[in-house]
Design a protein around this nucleic acid. Structure first.
Lengths: 151, 151
DNA sequence: GAGCCAGTTGAAAACAGTTCCCGTTTTCAG
DNA sequence: CTGAAAACGGGAACTGTTTTCAACTGGCTC
């Protein structure tokens, strides 16, 4: 997990950027959310830690963090501009459509799929967005419990 | 390709909806674009055919068409709200980052990937968004030609 | 054909999220 | 300490989207 301050500070410094109080607050807000969050949610959460934080800064910071790979953009069928803490460098993630939690998985065997697509379409494929959504283990358990309760 | 009027008219009728002049204009605009288009682009294009078309209607129509599967939402790393004509019922598509063209591919062997993700994360995966982007054959050819020209 | 009704429409207003602008503040190297 | 670069916050501006509403279809029955 590259979401520890020293690593990020280093990544920022490599671009001549700084790890400020505000940026730290944004990072922590995204990290402890352990789910995907919108810029506004980040704003609200980070503000508890850093009350004079501006929304503009949140946007700027999320962009910067996205560039250095500390934070990842999360897509979904409907919502599109959410962020989550990034773990492995090139992993994908599953988002729980019930509680919003985000989990990563690394076994990215997309190579086969990508190759097949390339063969079929003639494209040279350079990027892919794979976003899975479903129900996380806990929400499944809760749902099961609820069912038992009502039955 | 379900983008012929009779099929769509039928799909609409099944929901008690009509295939109006405006909706037809939107459908044609999306179809002949042969690439992904934003609501505004659809608006501009469809308006040539139906000058009194309103932007509101474009949004409404794109949504309806999306629901009946005649049109597909196209995602990308940055742009998120684009539409393209849908071919196969559950196919995926590749979008050319150069010219915007969209091609479909059907060999969707994601099952393996999805299963692996489910195993690794414990989620019950219900949906997936897979969006590839790259350079289409023609743009590759053009690029190659341009390179030859300048060398 | 008249009348009805659900579906459809466009314009304008409202809205939400995002970006821009600008003067101020902070940080850091020298 | 000083100057330059980076970063900041607030508010205005902007963009894309949705809502609202009154008017308008087109098919239907009578």
């Amino acid at each position: 997990m590259p979401l520890d301050s020293p690593t990020i500070a280093k990544d920022l410094a490599a671009r001549g950027l700084r790890l400020t109080r505000q940026r730290l607050a944004v990072i922590e807000a995204v990290t402890e959310a352990r789910g995907s969050v919108s810029p506004i949610q980040v704003f609200d959460s980070a503000r508890r830690r850093c009350p004079d934080l501006g929304l503009t800064t949140v946007y700027r910071t999320l962009e910067v963090l996205g560039e250095i790979g500390a934070v990842r953009r999360v897509h979904g069928p409907d919502h599109c501009e959410a962020f989550a803490a990034a773990g492995a460098r090139h992993g994908h993630c599953v988002i729980c459509s019930c509680c919003g939690r985000v989990s990563e998985f690394t076994e990215c065997d997309l190579a086969t799929v990508v190759a097949a697509a390339a063969r079929q379409t003639g494209y040279r494929i350079t990027e892919h967005v794979l976003q899975l959504s479903g129900i996380c283990a806990e929400c499944q358990a809760e749902a099961a419990q609820a069912r038992r309760g009502t039955t």
